[in-house]
Design a protein around this nucleic acid. Structure first.
Lengths: 249, 249
DNA sequence: CGGCTGCCGTGAGCTGCATCAAGGCTCGCT
DNA sequence: AGCGAGCCTTGATGCAGCTCACGGCAGCCG
């Protein structure tokens, strides 16, 4: 542990306070003062990065904390009794995961990193206590949860009503606009998730996803090179998906 | 207005305080004291019942309040740009609707009554202010929203992975257990929503839903008489649906 | 090096559910 | 009573996407 090369990195990350984090206006501390942010900083635990494929929490775990993605990406998924997965979301920096566990006190879903990922762990009991002193923090939490509900409802529409093409187009556009918000290119990015995860999330067979990527490329909508995607015709994709910004009103 | 026969009913309903409401342990004021409940009472507006098919709020409306169903039932739905509906939920007494609007300040979905329905309107700004003085109220709000997210995720699994049979079985069991929690029979109830709404919600064509009802009846799983359903073989339904309590962990 | 494992792409055939079409039932309205 | 509008049911047909089967490629390990 002490001679691990990650230690320095760890120490560096530990120094990043909410106030100096570039995600500050995507994450919890929106609208709180400098002093209040320091209070939040005191309860946030910045953990050393997780490697690809590690669990943040597992189905059935006791609920203690919610987690903010700081860098990297995470998939969340629930499980059927028969062992099948349903991927419920891909989460990018600034997003909070674990909110579905508050109600029951146990995690009803699992979360696994898709690549090397660093997270902020926010012990929930302390967050609730802090929210009593910092009303804005509670309000922001509620706003974030509202957005989550909204996002899920949009996904329901996608799974309930849309064709395979529309679904993939919608996912690509969602990733594109979310990455753009975070300062990355909206037109060109890497998919950190496997084709399998994509199919699972969109309610499609892997083979269908694979064929769709091929066809989208043939149609000049995108260029794909394994994990790397470039959106060549955003307007056509938007027309296909049927809406512009899948995760906003 | 003054000679309307609904007026007396209105007055009666208006007298029902949260403290004396039978839904008190399903709704917002869980775990708050008597005095705190009185404070909540002061901001809750008990409106006269809505008739069948009336809107509680519409897509695009300014967000001012959330609503608790007191009696009756409500469907919520979002819309595609092309005008199609996606039903996102059926809501029974004690459930809160409108939570998806907090984030953006506008309702991203519509809510329409399925039968004569009475609601409590809870102005959200006042609820937030009150939550500052009654921490438990804020916590309960967050818990309710967490359950909502959890419920949506379960629905995603349903739409993404389950067959038509499994979907209908899951819906019937969900309604059954939720009605049971509210003191109604778990085995026999009326469907307040149309076959169309059911199909829409489950991502199926009306015709498929109709055929499923017929087949379930032939298989001895249920008896149906138009809106009236009796679950004849709960265990078999549960086995079909693949899980027991669709909206709980 | 060779074998093994995980991920991705492609083709061929099948199937669950949508779609289309038509008829019955109920209820409210004239 | 008679008529029309919704809502529901049933049957026939078609197709989007699933399943199965196979081959390729990259990374990993002995």
């Amino acid at each position: 542990m002490s001679d691990c090369p990650a230690k320095n990195l760890d120490a560096t990350l530990a120094r990043i306070a909410c106030g100096s984090c570039s995600l500050v206006d995507l994450c919890l501390p929106v609208g709180v003062t400098r002093d209040e942010m320091d209070e939040l900083d005191r309860i946030v635990r910045r953990r050393r990065p997780l490697g690809r494929g590690e669990h943040v929490f597992r189905f059935g775990d006791d609920f203690r904390s919610v987690y903010a993605v700081r860098a990297g990406s995470v998939k969340t998924y629930t499980m059927t009794e028969s062992g099948g997965e349903q991927v419920t979301g891909f989460h990018l920096p600034g997003e909070i995961i674990g909110l579905d566990a508050i109600h029951s006190g146990r995690h009803p879903s699992s979360a696994k990193t898709l690549e090397t990922t660093s997270l902020c762990e926010i012990p929930f009991a302390q967050l609730e206590d802090l929210a009593v002193h910092i009303p804005m923090l509670g309000r922001q939490l509620v706003r974030i949860m509202s957005r989550e509900i909204r996002g899920d409802d949009e996904l329901l529409l996608l799974l309930g009503k849309k064709t395979a093409d529309e679904r993939l187009a919608a996912l690509l556009l969602s990733l594109s606009s979310r990455l753009h918000e975070r300062g990355f290119s909206a037109r060109e990015f890497n998919l950190s998730m496997s084709r399998n995860d994509i199919g699972n999330y969109l309610g499609l067979a892997v083979e269908t996803v694979s064929r769709l990527f091929t066809r989208f490329q043939q149609q000049g909508l995108i260029s794909v090179d394994s994990k790397h995607v470039r959106l060549e015709n955003l307007d056509a994709l938007r027309a296909l998906a049927g809406f512009d910004k899948p995760r906003c009103v």
